[in-house]
Each structure stands twice: as structure tokens, then as C-alpha cells.
Amino acid sequence: MTITAGTEPPEAPEQSEAERPEAVPAELTGAPVGRRLVLGLLGLGAAGVVTGRAIQDWLARRLSSLQQNDPTGLSDLLPLGNNFRYYSIVGSVPVKDASNYELKISGLVDNPVTLTLPQLRAMMQTDLTLDFQCVTGWRVLDVPWRGVKLADLLDAAGVKTEGRAVRFTCFDDAYTESLTLQQARRDDVIVALEMLGEPVTHDHGGPVRLYVGPMYGYKSAKWLSGIEITGEVKRGYWEGRGYDIDAWVGESNGRNDVPTS
């Protein structure tokens, strides 16, 4: 509003009549500081768009360890771009724990099974320390992950020869994801039981979530409840909304981030 104000001719307010031009209030004749401030801030904003990525990376490197160890959690409210943001596509998600959590493996398999949390914990655990990169730009460095390799679960259920892809469903009753069988068998794709050194919390998709190391975060489905072997890849939730199905970090979705795995 102040930008265009300066283009107005000097105007006296209504009560100063034409025969008293000297009565124009000082407020209408001073220096246009407001306009200068607006233009200066717009310039600063443009500079921020150009340099923001470098500034953010610099801040992220210096503050990530501080932030991950901040007991108050207040530093998470700062937009540093290096901390988790919590996305949920439904109104509320039921809370599940060892007493009622189940992971159902079904579809084109020889032995459909339903696993409980203690059963998953009893299987061989794999540790990974890899970044988590969101397709919207934020990246959390060096996140410790621990869980069961998806390949081990597929082997345990016995994939039939006509199986080509894996479809994931979630107990928010809305989210879906998928991988090709070849992608699903990678060593850096796990059914995670722990992240950041503790059991996966509810907000992070606990008690059990997927972690697809080499792909953008939307592939790492939270609140995982079902693994179904299918004959072809079916589009996941965000993939029906414009995101790539093969979501390799740095080689999809028009982005050029450094690969995570």
C-alpha cells in the first residue's frame, strides 16, 4: 500500500481548505521512509530466494546436532529446513503399540502371514544411517534407522513367480505406496522399528513404518499395516497427485538433490 502512496500528488486532508495550503500536515510531506523500507525488504527477499539454499545448508550443518538434542523441542519451531515436518493426510490416526499392532503380508505369496510387533523384533535387525529427504525440500542428515529388511519379509512369505510389485497400506486407512519387486529387495529398504535411536514414535509413523533409503520421503510410508504382492505397480497416494512413482532422490520430481543412498 505504501508503494503506490508515493505516486499520489500531495493532498491536504479534507479539513484543510484550498485557501490554507500551508496547513498541509507534516505527516503528508515527510520523507517516504515507508516506501524505501518496503523496497529494501523486497530486495532482501529476492536476495534470500537466490542465496536461501546456501544459507539453509550452512545453518543446517551447524545446528542439526544441537536441534536433535534439544530437550525442549522449541528449536524445531524454527524454519531451519533440517528437521522433520510431520505430514498426515487424514483427520486422525489410531495409536497402536505392541498389544494391537499387526503387519499383514498378502497377495501373490505362498505363505500369507500376519506378524506382530514382538515377531518383527525377533527377526534379524538391520541398521542404516542415512538422510531423510522430503520432496518439498527439507532434509534431515544422518538419521539412524533400525528394522527388518523388506527382502527378508518377502522371502519369509515366499513371492510367487507372477509377483512383480509390492503395495503398501497403512492403518490411517488412507495412505498407500508401492515399489517394484526389484526396488523392494534393495538392502537399504527396511521395515523400520526404530529411528533416531528409539522406537518409531506415533508422529513418525510408529510403531512400524517403511524406510526406502534411496527415495523421497513419501515412499517411506508411515503407520505401515499391510504388504501386498501384486502383478504390477499401483500408484500411491501422492503419485495420484502429480509425484513420480520412481522417486529416486536427485533423479525424479524435477529435483537435483544429492542422493541419500
Binding site: 503506490t4 502512496a5 505527516e27 503528508l28 515527510g30 515507508g34
Partner: peptide
């Protein structure tokens, strides 16, 4: 007009400001 006059008042800084 009243809005433009007020925008102008907000824009201008007098020595008293």
C-alpha cells in the same frame, strides 16, 4: 481517496517520527 491519504501518511516520516 481516504485510503490513499492514509497510505501516504503511513509512508511519510516527519522529523518528529
Amino acid at each position: 481517496r481516504a485510503y490513499r491519504v492514509d497510505a501516504r501518511r503511513l509512508n511519510r516520516f516527519s522529523p518528529d517520527d
